[in-house]
């Protein structure tokens, strides 16, 4: 505090006070640590998955791989149980499940992440605009948003796909738009809370511009709750995209994606094949992990957050 150095008394009394409140360090519980480990694992798999996978995602495994030394006939290659050849078994066409999961990580996580980013870009921009803007702007945006929120996400997705078909860009943009509505609500309510606080009032009186207030006062104050919300939203988007793929309306073959892998192999379920189970466990491991991390973080940043998210 260079301005106060001239006054010795002030300096002594203020030296006790730190410049900013001490950073709260988040100590993760065991479940949070497991969550972080699994999320890091899948992030790593996005980058190196295809290069360490035992086969290509589209390879049909050769029958000769499955010949049992004593047996004399060629076995079927589809719905093979786990073995040394295929660690997690094979799918309905005799492709290696493990390899397809490793390749699919990129598609599933990539699409969901891109959609979440779009939802956030759109939702936060409009949400803050509604929070700082005029009452009229807020009214317009909020009413419009409420109308969209009143359509169940899956219905919205089905109608859009029925109308324009399903390609990856459409899937990403559509999901981004659908989830932008709920991000808008969170960002707007968080922004409004900050807007009425004394320090924003002080900044306004000081004559700071709107842009300065948004970037220096509002955004830093809402970034932490938004980050937690980002995690939850990401989970819901993964589940949404997987559900669409599962219905056969999301990622189209021959690309491997966890949701569509479940759909393809559903026929093996009555015979006890684990081929449909494995990709859904992959989804579950990712979504549960993110939830565990979010739980840990929000336990440290006050429980009030959950009220805003519903």
């Amino acid at each position: 505090m260079p301005e106060q150095e001239s006054e010795a008394t002030m300096e002594t009394s203020f030296q006790e006070l730190p410049d900013a409140p001490p950073r709260r360090r988040i100590r993760f519980s065991l479940s949070g640590k497991i969550g972080i480990f699994l999320v890091l694992f899948w992030v790593l798999m996005i980058f190196i998955g295809p290069s360490i996978s035992p086969y290509n995602e589209a390879d049909f495994l050769d029958e000769s791989l499955f010949i049992v030394p004593g047996g004399d006939e060629y076995p079927d290659t589809d719905y093979q149980p786990p073995s040394k050849v295929a660690l997690l078994g094979t799918d309905y066409l005799g492709r290696d499940t493990l390899s397809r999961i490793l390749y699919g990580a990129r598609t599933t996580i990539g699409i969901s992440f891109a959609a979440t980013l779009i939802a956030y870009l759109l939702g936060v921009t409009l949400g803050i605009a509604a929070a700082v803007g005029s009452e009229w702007l807020d009214m317009c945006l909020s009413r419009f948003n409420d109308a969209f929120l009143s359509i169940p996400t899956i219905m919205m997705g089905l109608v859009v796909i029925a109308a324009v078909g399903s390609t990856i860009p459409i899937l990403v943009i559509m999901t981004g738009f659908i989830y932008a509505t709920s991000v808008f609500r969170v960002a707007r309510s968080l922004g409004q809370d900050v807007m009425v606080s004394d320090f924003v009032e002080a900044a306004k009186v000081r004559g700071e511009g709107l842009w300065w207030i948004i970037t220096r006062e509002i955004l830093p104050n809402i970034v932490m709750p938004l980050a937690t919300d980002f995690g939850l939203r990401f989970v819901w988007i993964i589940l949404f995209i997987s559900a669409l793929s599962f219905l056969g309306l999301g990622v189209q073959p021959p690309m491997s994606d966890w949701g569509s892998m479940v759909k393809e192999n559903l026929g093996g379920l009555p015979y006890g094949s684990i081929a449909p189970l494995m990709p859904s466990l992959a989804i579950a491991s990712l979504t549960i992990s993110i939830n565990l991390i979010v739980d840990d973080i929000s336990a440290h940043s006050g429980g009030k957050l959950s009220n805003k998210m519903i």
């Binding site: 589940l239 997987s242 559900a243 479940v262 189970l277 859904s280 579950a284 939830n291």
Partner: peptide, 11 residues
């Protein structure tokens, strides 16, 4: 609630 609906069904 954090796993896909179809996983519950399949289990």
């Amino acid at each position: 609630i954090s796993v896909p609906d179809f996983l519950v069904a399949m289990i």
